[in-house]
Amino acid sequence: MDPGNQKTSLEEFNSWNTDNLQHYLTMRGLTKEGTKDELVALCFSAGKLGLPVKPNQSEVLLDNVKCYKSILSYCDIPDPLTLHSGWFDEKSSISRWPPTFLSDISTFLIDHGDVASLSLVLKDYKVGKSNEYFTCGGLQEVFYHPLDKNTCILKANAVHPKE
């Protein structure tokens, strides 16, 4: 079975059984409902459009771990998840927080070459989602951990916002 060649012909898709057609569509995040003719048409269209195979959950997780480790190495800081003590709650530490502006975050993402995250940050900021995440309870208390005189880590517990 062809994993997604744009040159796959309609006749070739038509020769596939329903299970293979459904698998091809599922891997691209498309519906697998319909008659065989409808599935063939969807597969052919997806192939012509060059729709990519969507990564599975474990691939996304591995990619996130690589990105996380890359950011830690770029900043040369310890992994905040391994720091079990030395954290201060928001109320007692807010006066120690460094000033942080959207331009600081954008500059970091540009320097780091993470255009996708930069785009997301700018879009979310533009529609006020940053504040919305906080006000709807998506971000909970922020904790502060000093590393040295000029460096600290801020972290917050994040939960799925209430609808």
Rank of each mutant, 00 (worst) to 15 (best):
R28Q: 00
L42F: 06
A41L: 13
T35C: 01
L21P: 00
G50P: 09
G47N: 07
K54Q: 14
L72D: 10
K48N: 07
K48M: 10
S73A: 13
L61D: 07
V65P: 06
M27G: 07
S45L: 14
E59R: 05
K66A: 00
V60R: 13
D63F: 08
L61G: 06
Y24A: 03
L30E: 06
Y24M: 00
S73N: 15
M27N: 08
V40D: 03
S45Q: 14
S15D: 10
I71P: 08
S15C: 12
L42T: 06
L61H: 08
L21E: 02
L72S: 13
W16Y: 15
K54P: 06
Y74N: 09
K54H: 05
L25M: 10
V40N: 04
M27L: 10
S70L: 11
P55N: 00
T18I: 14
K32F: 04
N20A: 12
L72G: 09
T35G: 01
T35I: 04
N64M: 14
C67R: 14
W16D: 10
K48V: 09
T35V: 02
E33Y: 09
Q57H: 13
A46Q: 06
S15N: 15
D76F: 06
G50E: 04
D76Y: 01
Y24K: 06
G34L: 07
P55S: 13
S58A: 14
E59S: 09
L21M: 03
R28V: 11
D19T: 11
G29E: 02
C67I: 10
Y68K: 08
K32R: 08
L25H: 06
K36Q: 12
L21D: 07
Y74I: 04
T31M: 01
L25T: 03
E33N: 15
L49P: 03
C67T: 12
V40K: 07
W16C: 00
R28F: 10
D37E: 13
L61T: 12
